[in-house]
Computed example of a mutant assay.
Amino acid sequence: MACYAVAATLASERSALADRLTGDGLVPLHSGLGEHDDPARSLIFANDSQWIAFNTGHMELLSRPEVTQQVLKWLTPPAEPQA
């Protein structure tokens, strides 16, 4: 089963401080990516199955074209080679 995580942050880039203190205004970035301080409680997403929307608030995730494009990229099957 394919699983994906989209998280947002109000920060413009990742850094240890921004990841810990700046989330999307509602959810910390680590939580949005399914990460937990206790590894037994973390969700495991492949790196290419995670995507971060920078300079984005929690509710903005619903209307950002970049988010839609990423979800479509994940969900669109690859084109079959033409014979």
Rank of each mutant, 00 (worst) to 15 (best):
M1F: 13
A2Y: 12
C3T: 06
C3L: 10
C3H: 11
C3F: 12
Y4A: 05
A5D: 09
A7L: 03
T9A: 03
L10I: 05
L10H: 02
S12A: 14
S12G: 14
E13V: 03
E13T: 09
R14Q: 12
S15P: 13
S15R: 14
L17I: 13
A18Q: 15
A18Y: 14
A18M: 15
D19M: 02
D19W: 01
R20W: 15
R20C: 08
R20H: 11
L21S: 10
G23N: 01
D24L: 03
D24K: 04
G25K: 01
G25P: 03
L26F: 09
L26M: 13
V27P: 02
V27F: 06
V27L: 10
P28C: 06
L29H: 04
G32A: 04
L33N: 05
E35C: 02
H36Q: 05
H36V: 00
H36K: 03
H36N: 09
D37G: 04
D38C: 04
P39W: 06
P39I: 05
R41Q: 12
L43K: 14
I44K: 03
I44W: 04
F45D: 06
F45H: 11
A46N: 03
A46S: 05
A46V: 00
N47C: 00
D48I: 00
D48Y: 02
Q50H: 06
Q50T: 10
W51A: 01
I52R: 03
A53V: 08
F54M: 03
T56Q: 01
T56L: 00
G57Y: 03
G57P: 02
H58F: 04
M59E: 07
M59T: 10
M59S: 08
E60H: 08
L61T: 14
L62F: 15
S63L: 12
R64E: 12
P65W: 10
E66W: 06
T68I: 07
T68A: 10
T68Y: 10
T68P: 01
Q69G: 06
Q70P: 09
V71I: 14
V71W: 11
L72I: 10
L72M: 10
W74N: 07
W74D: 05
L75K: 08
T76A: 13
P77D: 09
E80D: 06
P81W: 03
P81Q: 07
